[in-house]
Design a protein around this nucleic acid. Structure first.
Lengths: 226, 226
DNA sequence: CTACTATTCAATAAACTTATTGAATAGTTG
DNA sequence: CAACTATTCAATAAGTTTATTGAATAGTAG
């Protein structure tokens, strides 16, 4: 009985140690950023290194750790290795961790206030509401992510307008319609900048709630391709 | 413009570093266990040390880290310091992390199969279904947690039956009713043991989905007290 | 005010993590 | 088959984390 009890305690401890492997994978800012990039689309190592600003070797090391923790999977195509998230539940995990940090870590609140809320203190439009507006052609939806992320999947009817092309694109906008912009996630400056620019031009503009990965994971319709 | 771009990159990196603070807090098995204890009820340091098997100093250190990461809050009452979770979203975070580990970490699957699934491979009864059965007096609900956790909150109508009292309690059970047992979470051996014992006696018995914290956080009715 | 209790702090050693650098490996091309 | 490309591995130094131990702090009781 006594050895039975200690076996159970050891089992439970072992289980927590295993759960902690996922926590370890999420304990580094670089790995979190890599996960956010992979939430948009499958990517190769060299591309991930480039967009994250890490060396290829360092990127590869972090990806090994993410794979060991079960958060990503890989496939090889010729010389290139492509990484992807192991499931949509990783997006939920990232969103939950981000939400907890937003609510309970003062430094996060401070950073968000300093860089984001000053640009747009309005609440973003909820996904379901946006979907209704899209169905009734009541909005223009702008996806300000890089083209390859847009191609991998986007909100139906969205137009891919990287920020440096926004000026030119303005001429094609229906000024009667409200514009809604989205990016990779709820803290992507690009969506905030886009909204700020649109408002400067006198247009009604808002951000979408969260980013594209959350839209997709909520089971909402998705388009692919250019 | 260029300094603007690098400011934005620095901001985003800083944000991920802050998010990683939550990941760091979850990167140690002992801290995860402490969080599961706190999910049941507010506790003092000495009690947490006792039930987790850590020294008081070590427990205190881990609690400081959890507090710095925003996951717990504390209050002082005389000599004693009581810790509690900073919000129900921490329960969501723990559940999401656990779910990801269950699905994507082979060692977790192996541990669960070795210690739990062999005891009860039936699916646990979902919370909503249990609530309906409770309302219609169709089940007996057994809470196998320690009395102080039961007192802090439990499923309405549940009876607190620590495992070593189950034998005696059997005589009071209505053998016509199905028994449903629950504990601190989905991997608590006690709920599995209770179900195994009840079935040995010829009773219909199942586990409840997850544990009490998840029930409460789903907004389902809760009773307090003995 | 002293003695006690509960908790936290600080120093320490050992183990772990991180980024770097160069080597090794696997796949492709000519 | 040699040269090249893309990626991973291994060794390393520096920094961080963990548990321990004893000191320090805060609150209480007599």
């Amino acid at each position: 009985m006594s050895s039975n009890v200690s076996n159970k305690c050891a089992f439970k401890h072992d289980l927590f140690v295993q759960f902690a492997r996922v926590g370890k994978a999420l304990s580094n800012g670089n790995r979190l950023e890599l996960l956010e990039f992979l939430a948009q689309s499958e990517r190769g190592v060299d591309e991930l290194a480039r967009i994250s600003g890490l060396t290829v070797a360092n990127t590869s090391q972090h990806l090994q750790q993410l794979r060991q923790a079960g958060l990503v999977l890989s496939r090889k195509e010729g010389l290139k290795v492509y990484y992807r998230l192991s499931g949509d539940d990783i997006i939920t995990l990232l969103g939950t961790l981000r939400g907890v940090a937003e609510r309970h870590v003062a430094d996060v609140e401070r950073l968000v206030n300093t860089y984001l809320t000053v640009k747009d203190s309005l609440e973003p439009i909820p996904r379901d509401e946006l979907l209704e507006r899209v169905k009734h052609d009541l909005v223009t939806v702008l996806d300000v992510r890089p083209p390859e992320e847009f191609a991998a999947g986007h909100v139906p009817g969205a137009v891919n307008v990287p920020l440096d092309e926004l000026e030119q694109y303005l001429q094609k906008l229906d000024p009667e319609l409200e514009a809604v912009a989205y990016c990779r996630g709820p803290h992507c400056v690009l969506a905030f900048d886009a909204v700020a620019r649109l408002r400067e031009k006198g247009l009604k503009a808002r951000r979408m709630q969260d980013g594209f990965p959350e839209w997709k994971q909520a089971g909402l319709p998705v388009e692919s391709g250019e």
